[in-house]
Design a protein around this nucleic acid. Structure first.
Length: 330
DNA sequence: TGCAGTCCATGTGCTCTGAC
DNA sequence: GTCAGAGCACATGGACTGCA
């Protein structure tokens, strides 16, 4: 057997790489069950005959101990049967059935008869279902597909199922799919508590130090704290063209903000840009409010609610003063 | 000495482009 | 049309530096 399949993916945590290579055992062929094969068309009988007729000693096959299913080596098993042998050399894998399947896929793309493209796509679908937390590249490295292809399969497969917020990469690190909610929270903290350290803000908002720094730099440049890539596409369209806005409260706020941003007397002064930044932070869409809500720990909700009320009161007072000022000028 | 900020290598997903 | 590779922007953790 090609021992590379034992090292399916060192960085993927749930693969559970077994320590060392346990010695192969001679096991009765009758005790083994057919594999949960990634090959949709079954074994290739011609390939099995070729192996049987070669006369060469066949390497041990890999078997899932809990189910006695063959993980890797169905062609070698068929070849042994064709030779009339009663036993076959086996190496056991101890782990979950889903991990055994991943191991089988990995083994089949690294040696032996390669999986077809269709087989690899089906395998990717199964791995996405069993390991939704794995990144596209991690699954791509197991199935032999391109990461982009895995991403496309994931999008199709997850239309009816909720998306996880983070993925585990090939290096075993967890990376969020979107840091938008954390960025918005960090933005609020930076403006309400400028003396707080980046680390404090990073810890409180659940994003990395580098991301907090990026938020700070963006605010200093008068930019949105959330990169356009991470904002919903509909929102990006809104800020690009106010003519396509449907009549909704969130959209009305966006429209007013766009108008304000376009006003030279506002956008060409430091105080004006600061005002736009403050208004942008507080003009949250329903989706952003929902995301922010999910980031507030249970024990902090009272404090956050109190702060939110205080902010609301401040803005109400400001609105009243502005209205009075407008009336006075008229 | 410990904290805070910065830099860097390396990972991610997305988009574009060319090969088949 | 499908697929993979290159390049991009962004995120991460560790290493490093500066400062009280």
């Amino acid at each position: 057997m090609d021992t590379r399949c034992r090292d399916a993916h060192p960085a993927l945590p749930s693969l559970g790489r077994p320590p060392g290579h346990p010695p192969a055992e001679s096991v009765s062929i009758d005790a083994l069950h057919p594999s949960d094969s990634p090959r949709t068309s079954g074994e290739n009988s011609a390939h099995a005959r070729t192996l049987a007729e070669s006369g060469a000693e066949l390497p041990p096959i890999l078997v899932h101990r809990a189910t006695m299913r063959v993980i890797d080596g169905m062609h070698r098993l068929r070849a042994a049967e064709l030779r009339g042998e009663k036993t076959v050399l086996v190496r056991y894998f101890d782990g979950a059935a889903t991990e055994a399947f991943v191991l089988g896929v990995k083994a089949n793309i690294t040696h032996g008869l390669p999986l077809s493209l269709a087989d690899r796509r089906v395998a990717a679908e199964r791995i996405i279902e069993s390991h939704p937390q794995w990144s596209d590249r991690a699954i791509a490295s197991v199935t032999g597909l391109a990461a982009k292809t895995v991403g496309m399969i994931r999008r199709c497969a997850s239309e009816d199922s909720p998306q996880l917020r983070a993925r585990i990469g090939r290096d075993g690190r967890v990376r969020p799919l979107s840091s938008a909610a954390g960025r918005l929270q960090a933005c609020v903290m930076l403006q309400e508590n400028p003396a707080a350290s980046l680390r404090q803000i990073a810890s409180a908002s659940g994003i990395s130090l580098g991301t907090v720094r990026d938020v700070r730099d963006r605010l200093a440049r008068g930019e949105d704290p959330v990169p356009s890539r991470q904002r919903p596409r509909s929102e990006v369209v809104r800020s690009a063209s106010v003519d396509v806005l449907p009549e909704r409260t969130d959209d009305q706020m966006s429209r007013l903000l766009v108008r304000l941003r376009q006003d030279p007397s506002i956008r060409l002064t430091e105080s004006g840009r600061a005002l736009i930044r403050l208004l942008s932070v507080h003009a949250l869409t329903a989706e952003e409010r929902r995301r922010l809500l999910n980031t507030v720990p249970e024990h902090c909700r009272g404090v956050v609610a109190e702060l939110a009320n205080a902010c609301a009161q401040t803005w109400c007072e400001l609105a009243t003063w502005l209205a009075r000022g407008a009336e006075a000028k008229v």
